[in-house]
């Protein structure tokens, strides 16, 4: 540890804050039924939930990237009332309770939602499908990507883009060869955050997509259900989710941050 250059008394609330997180997580690890841990997390229902969670989170992250990167660029490169309104709108799911998001999604994509009939005609049934899970996850996770990437894009500014244009690069070339590489650290951490948020999504999914093993019951939904049936399994699965989260955070920390160096 380096020498502390802050008021010593701040250590008390700081330690308290750390304990607030550490004690419950530690308690969970202590109370888990280690003897049956393997069996608990490898039951058919658990494996189905974990596999579904990973699949849907990956798919949702891809959608977050496809839709979020353009959104972030538009937000980073525009200003004015319209841009401010758009930003507030895009970031809304960040501050909204996920269950509200689920209700909103129902009003749009549900069978009796405003788009439900159109989707019906097109032969698309979203309610109770894995698609609904992906939509719900994308809805709640996209703001994390947009926020993170927009910050990186704003920090990078347009100086390099201007230079690239005067070197004869068209807008698309500038975007792919200059804009995105320069914002890569923000893009990577935004992607990881979005993936983590997808993995943890619960409220919007249970409201909008329902809960059926292998189709819509992701790991958080399985944990919530197991609380009723087999609390030991709920604790064990929670620990699995903690492990995944720790991995994801480790990823964020380990990402190469040297790309932004030497911008003079």
């Amino acid at each position: 540890m380096t020498r502390a250059n802050f008021p010593r008394w701040l250590l008390v609330p700081a330690v308290l804050g750390a304990l607030l997180v550490a004690v419950p997580i530690g308690a969970m690890a202590l109370t888990v039924d280690w003897a049956n841990f393997g069996a608990l997390i490898t039951s058919e229902a658990s494996r189905a939930a974990l596999w579904l969670s990973l699949r849907t989170a990956a798919a949702s992250t891809v959608f977050c990237l496809l839709l979020g990167i353009p959104l972030a660029l538009v937000l980073a490169r525009t200003s004015g009332t319209a841009a401010t309104l758009l930003r507030s709108l895009v970031l809304l799911p960040l501050v909204l309770p996920p269950v509200v998001g689920g209700i909103a999604l129902l009003q749009a994509f549900g069978r009796r939602g405003i788009l439900g009939h159109t989707l019906d005609v097109l032969g698309l049934e979203i309610a109770f499908s894995t698609t609904a899970v992906v939509i719900a996850q994308t809805f709640v996770a996209m703001p994390f990507l947009v926020l993170s990437l927009e910050g990186a894009l704003r920090a990078a500014g347009t100086r390099y883009e201007d230079v690239a244009a005067t070197l004869g690069a068209g807008p698309t070339t500038v975007f792919t060869r200059v804009t995105l590489p320069l914002a890569l650290p923000g893009l990577v951490s935004g992607t990881i955050l979005a993936f983590a948020r997808c993995l943890g999504e619960f409220g919007a999914t249970i409201t909008f997509a329902g809960s059926l093993q292998g189709t819509t019951r992701t790991l958080p939904l399985e944990i919530y259900l197991q609380r009723e049936g087999d609390p030991r399994a709920a604790v064990a699965l929670s620990l699995v989710l903690v492990a995944v989260a720790v991995l994801v955070i480790g990823f964020t920390r380990a990402r190469p941050g040297s790309l932004s160096a030497g911008t003079s």
């Binding site: 390099y160 690239a164 590489p181 911008t263 003079s264």
Partner: peptide, 10 residues
């Protein structure tokens, strides 16, 4: 050609 070189850092 600008005041700073503005070489693409990546």
């Amino acid at each position: 050609l600008a005041q700073e070189a503005r070489l693409f850092p990546h």
